[in-house]
Design a protein around this nucleic acid. Structure first.
Lengths: 164, 164
DNA sequence: GATGAAATGTTTACTAA
DNA sequence: TTAGTAAACATTTCATC
C-alpha cells in the first residue's frame, strides 16, 4: 500500500512550475503564483517552504546591471596549470577566488584547460591589474588565455525544468 | 555654479551597500536593510525604488540547486565557426539559444574560439542528445570542444561593488 | 490543501530639514 | 532633494478545519 510521500519527495509539475516562475521573478506574490498554478496562496506558501527547506531554492538574489555599475569588461579566462589540477594548485586557486572579487565564476574542467574563470572589470586597465594580481597569487599558472566577451547572447542561466 | 544632481545620479556608498546586501539575499526586509545602512525603512524603500527604476537592479531571481533538480552535468563548450562570427552564424546561434533550453549562458568572444556556451544537462546521454541537436541546428560549427565541469569553485557571479 | 485571522512587510502622504 | 513619522495597504504566516 502506498503511504504518504517521503519528506524529501520528488517534485511534481506544480513545484516545477513554481520554480520556473520564481527563476523569472522571485518577487511575485504568493497570490499571483497561486492563480497561475491553480492553488490557494497558502498552498503556494507551503510548497515554497518545502522547496526552500529541501534546498531546491538555494537563495534569492538581485541581478544587477554590470554596465550601469561600471563593470563593462567581461572576460573568460582559460587557465592551465603546471602539474594540472594537483591539490596545491587547487588550494591556491581557491585562495585566489577569495582574494580577487573580480572573479564571478570559476570552474575546474576537463579538456585543454584546467580551469575556466569569468571575470568582470571596469576597463582594460583594471584587467591588466587583475591579471597581474592573478599571476602573482597563482604561481603555478602555465598559461592563461584571456577571452574578451564581445556579446552576451544569454546570461543568468535559468534552469530548464520542463523535463526535470 | 554646481546645480542639483541629474535624475539618474551617481550611486553613493549606501546605494552600493544596499545592492551588495540584495545580491546576497534579495528577500531581506526593508526594516533589516534599514538597520544595516543606518536609515529608516522608508529611506530604504525610496532608494530601492530609484535603483529599480534606474535599471541598476534588473531583476530578482531564485537561484536553484542544479543537482537536486537532476541537472548534474555542467559543461562549457568552446565553439569555433567556419567564417568566424559572420552575421549568418550569429543569427543561427541566436536561434539555437532559443531552441535549446539547456544553454544557460552564451557569449561571443575574442581568442581561439568564437563563442563560449555553458550547458546544464541530466547526464551523458542528455549531453550526447544536446550535442546532436546543436550540430544539427548550427550548421557552420567548425569545432566544439566540450569541457566537462569537475568542480564549481564559485558561481552565481555577484558583482564586486566596493570600488564601483 | 483551503479559510480566515494575526503578524509582518510595503508603500504612500505628509512633514521637516 | 532627501529622509523620517505614522497610517493605509498588501503580503506572508499560522491555527484550524
Amino acid at each position: 500500500m502506498m503511504l504518504s510521500r517521503p519528506v524529501s519527495s520528488q517534485l511534481d509539475e506544480i513545484d516545477r512550475t513554481l520554480l520556473t516562475l520564481l527563476q523569472d521573478d522571485a518577487s511575485t506574490s504568493h497570490a499571483d503564483l497561486a492563480q497561475r498554478v491553480g492553488l490557494s496562496a497558502t498552498g503556494v506558501h507551503k510548497r515554497l517552504k518545502h522547496l526552500r527547506q529541501g534546498g531546491y531554492i538555494k537563495k534569492v538574489t538581485a541581478v544587477l546591471d554590470r554596465s550601469k555599475l561600471g563593470l563593462d569588461l567581461l572576460c573568460i579566462l582559460k587557465v592551465t596549470f603546471r602539474g594540472n589540477l594537483q591539490p596545491d594548485n587547487l588550494a591556491e586557486l581557491q585562495r585566489c577566488i577569495q582574494a580577487l572579487p573580480e572573479i564571478l565564476e570559476c570552474y575546474t574542467v576537463t579538456g585543454s584547460s584546467d580551469a575556466i574563470i569569468k571575470v568582470a572589470v571596469r576597463d582594460h586597465v583594471a584587467l591588466r591589474d587583475f591579471l597581474h594580481r592573478l599571476s602573482t597569487q597563482q604561481q603555478a599558472i602555465e598559461r592563461a588565455e584571456t577571452c574578451i566577451v564581445l556579446q552576451e547572447l544569454k546570461e543568468g542561466g535559468e534552469l530548464p525544468l520542463g523535463n526535470a
